[in-house]
Design a protein around this nucleic acid. Structure first.
Lengths: 212, 212
DNA sequence: ACCTGAACACCGTTCAAGT
DNA sequence: ACCTGAACACCGTTCAAGT
């Protein structure tokens, strides 16, 4: 009864060291299905079919689980960006495509987006290294597009200007990240569609990076 | 004892219909002093010197209080932006000044910034009108700068292009909003100072809006 | 009209105990 | 090594009762 939503192999796996992964998956399921990013640790345990303190064998506390979930969510975001720029040579088009994928992912699953940039990162004390590392890997996607654009002369950045590349990367990330949260919060212009907003905002960034 | 941190006039005021305001002030104090945006309703009541369910006479539930706190925080943000652009005629400089004020405010009080764009707006069900209205007033500051810039020919937007103005406004807000959250989350480049980051990112936006 | 105290269901975390 | 059940302090919310 407790395990009725799990098949036998999955139930067995909990005794094989997979509970950690199962708890992260259960969390992602709750976030995605119920759009609830403030779920309780006990609810996750219930969904995974274990007692409410079994998670403590794999995570120091609730925030430690949230860190793992946020990191997994960031990896998903990164994968979508990578898939979106696959085969696109023009750096400007690649930046637009990655931005579209990023904002769409956030708007499609707002609760996950809020979780990623929410409680885990806000935790007092030491920075949660898991999320930070995943965030760095996500930023790298934009960094590489900027680097290609700078090398090809598509963006007005000298090849040896690492500061310029950092600013360009952060400009692009800030714009799509800010647009995503404003759209999720209902603070973006409702007259325009999400795609129109992304194209418009990314267009401003691309215009700002273009050689004059 | 319960009221030891309140003087008599303040204590009396709670019987004059000011508890609502006092609870919002107490919340802002907790957020600012303890950098804790996930405070409990009971803690707010304790700080205000009332029983733990007195708040229910003024707010429907905890989220209703959070909405009021978020709206107050947004008004503060708006006031800082307005003060920063006071007397600046050049639209480009005004946009930079407002952006600097915005990001600095967020970085100085990250917990308040998280609260503003956090739980209240994420609440399931109906949109919290209080925050939405305050958000619209905050966006208006940027809108007016863009409008001035479009009129003066400082930005490449035709006078009758309301769509262009909306995109420009959202581009500016997205950039500073995204930069603020990334900086707070420790995901911005640590090599550069906050002011350098704002100048760089705002520079990209301004460059993108400038006539060619 | 506004506030209080008791009560309820729920939560995060700890601890002793089981296999 | 990993999991369970009891226990503790705390929370959001409701309700009856006070002024």
């Amino acid at each position: 009864m407790k395990n009725r939503h799990l098949d036998e192999s999955e139930a067995r796996a909990y005794h094989h060291g997979d509970l950690r992964r199962a708890l992260v998956q259960a969390s992602l399921a709750i976030v995605g299905e119920e759009q609830d990013w403030a779920f309780s640790l006990r609810e996750v345990a219930r969904r995974a079919g274990v007692s409410h303190n079994a998670p403590y064998n794999h995570f120091a506390d609730k925030n430690d689980l949230l860190v793992a979930v946020a990191a997994a969510g960031l990896e998903r975001l990164r994968d979508k960006m990578l898939a979106a720029i696959e085969g696109i040579d023009d750096p400007a088009l690649a930046l637009l495509a990655s931005g579209l994928a990023y904002v769409r992912a956030g708007v499609e699953n707002p609760a996950l987006y809020r979780l990623i940039f929410g409680p885990a990162l806000a935790a007092a004390g030491a920075r949660p290294v898991g999320v930070m590392a995943a965030g760095a890997r996500t930023r790298e996607v934009l960094e590489q597009i900027v680097e290609r654009g700078a090398g090809a002369g598509a963006f007005a950045i000298a090849p040896d200007d690492s500061r310029g590349r950092a600013v360009a990367t952060l400009s692009a990330w800030s714009a799509v990240h800010g647009l995503t949260t404003l759209a999720i919060d209902g603070l973006a212009d409702p007259q325009l569609s999400i795609d129109e907003l992304v194209i418009g905002v990314t267009g401003t960034i691309l215009n700002g990076l273009r050689p004059r």
